[in-house]
Nucleic acid binder design. Sequence first.
DNA 1: ACTATGTGCAACTTGTTGGTTGCATGATAC
DNA 2: GTATCATGCAACCAACAAGTTGCACATAGT
Lengths: 106, 106
Amino acid sequence: MRSEVSEVFSALADDTRRAIYERLLAQPSGLTATQLSKDSSVSRQAIVKHLQLLGGAGLARSLREGRDVLYLATPRGTELASKWLVENGAAWDRRLAALQKRAKDS
Amino acid sequence: MRSEVSEVFSALADDTRRAIYERLLAQPSGLTATQLSKDSSVSRQAIVKHLQLLGGAGLARSLREGRDVLYLATPRGTELASKWLVENGAAWDRRLAALQKRAKDS
DNA sequence: ACTATGTGCAACTTGTTGGTTGCATGATAC
DNA sequence: GTATCATGCAACCAACAAGTTGCACATAGT
């Protein structure tokens, strides 16, 4: 089973999908798949698939509104990605610290 | 052509590849594909492919050392990913600010 | 020189991904 | 109640990704 953080990175690895996510971010009231597909080069069905994938990665959620289905950005996904990056950024700091220690000891 | 940041996210989206990258981070002097494959479930050739992909994403570079080829972690890739996350994290702040403004105005 | 070992290259298999089209279903507005 | 419009579902396709095996080539060490 693919790890959670893998799902997030994988969701963010596609240009189309990142563009969708950015549009959701810019529109806090949400957007429907049909609206998103209006000025997009790909079909509504393709958009829906992307939205479901974003949902699985904790980057979006859906909300039924009568006949429409609104999609909204959620923060959990990017939190996971940030967490991994911060933790591994810390490795760079440790490397730097080790370097400085060696320099001081010599 | 797939964007640069897509390449980074895509590189980080695979568990095997992230594990390799983390090992490179922990070993500032570098590791060879053969060394990496010793205690890994996949073949050396698979590891090499991952390393080349990491290289393409600015997450690693290679260095010939006699008969061996050392692979080292590089910071550029994670910088690109962090940049995207920070910029889009800022969208959440803007949304919060808009919410507060509306609350104050009412 | 011979042998060990590390690397490079290529063909191939299998599963996944991003996209399509076609059609059925469900809610709205007159 | 019927025309309209958004959604849901399924089959299909081409390209790519992750992995394998097999073998050739290069560099060390003795």
